[in-house]
Nucleic acid binder design. Structure first.
Lengths: 178, 178
DNA sequence: GCCTTATATCTCAGTAGTAAGATTATCCAG
DNA sequence: CTGGATAATCTTACTACTGAGATATAAGGC
């Protein structure tokens, strides 16, 4: 992502009413209207906040997936590749690729797992740790600012609801990512 | 996405405690802990429900972006390419590419906009409309089932909170998608 | 111990998108 | 009506990932 105007579509373009032939829009399924609405606002909210996050992350030259790895290692310490994979939801090929790239950048290293010679740990290098210490607080502030549409109490309520919603949805029939 | 086992990581693998050298995990930023938590559960919930959605959509051979276009046209009638672009959040190149692909599949067609010769409408073909009429109800049910972790009242509360959250986040400094 | 099955990572070809810029059309001030 | 700025779409080159299979290790029943 590169620098660009903050507001792209400031005003809705006033446009003459549709005159094109239009086969009457389908009647919305009433049966699940409320559920669909929830799904829409859920994904829109996540996308809106996510764009703030991504834009901030891109300033430092990372993708969201890369930053997710750095953040996981920063907060949790060394993690097996598979554990990171599940945490940030990428494919097995993806985690190899991403860790390679972060290794090339000198921020992450692989370490052998003494208990299981198939597995490898990913760990932050000192440079990686230093970097995260420097940039993470600002990132947290960007996220916090993106959430100011809700009051503190509303944010707490939303957190509880979304935690339950997410848990249940992941439980119903978790697809996995490979 | 292709067929695969429904449950991949049914049980947490029991694994011996970490013994690898571990530079003590960073102290979490306390300052924005609650906000970060909300962001985590928000994106996790969206991802969990999104996986149900994607898996269902993939059964019919579509990507989420393709299906988003079909759904928009199905429910709203003809739309300008740019309007669809903003609605499903893809780049300008992406919308051209996606509409091309749906056109090749015979589900969507472009029509001239009589008021603005730069713009084009996308419309569902009869085949596209028939298809959506057939598959959309099932899709709605998949979504609804993914949301059953909350009661009806909780879902309503969540909808309100997420609508406000999304609006505000999109308003703060909408990044745009091109 | 041996065989089967499962797990962890890696390899590599393929793809759905993005970014930047080109093209064409519109709008508006002068 | 002309010129410059803006807007809508398309083109092209590129990239971050996915998916399927390969390799190596582990674990458990016999």
């Amino acid at each position: 992502m590169s620098p660009r105007p903050l507001l792209k579509h400031a005003g809705k373009a006033v446009r003459p009413a549709r005159t094109v032939a239009s086969p009457a829009p389908a009647a919305v399924d009433e049966r699940y209207a409320e559920e669909l609405k929830l799904w829409v606002v859920l994904s829109r909210a996540a996308a809106a906040v996510g764009q703030h996050s991504e834009r901030d992350i891109a300033r430092h030259g990372f993708t969201s997936a890369e930053f997710g790895i750095l953040e996981a290692l920063y907060h949790k310490g060394p993690l097996l590749l598979g554990d990171i994979q599940r945490r940030i939801l990428v494919s097995s090929g993806g985690i190899t690729f991403l860790v390679d790239r972060l290794t090339d950048k000198g921020l992450v290293a692989r370490e052998a797992c003494p208990n299981d010679r198939r597995a490898r740990y990913a760990v932050l290098t000192p440079a990686g740790r230093t970097l995260m210490k420097r940039i993470f607080p600002d990132h947290a502030e960007v996220i916090a600012r993106a959430l100011t549409g809700l009051t503190r109490e509303q944010r707490r309520a939303a957190t509880r609801l979304l935690r339950d919603l997410g848990r249940a949805a992941a439980g119903v029939a978790a697809p996995g990512t490979d």
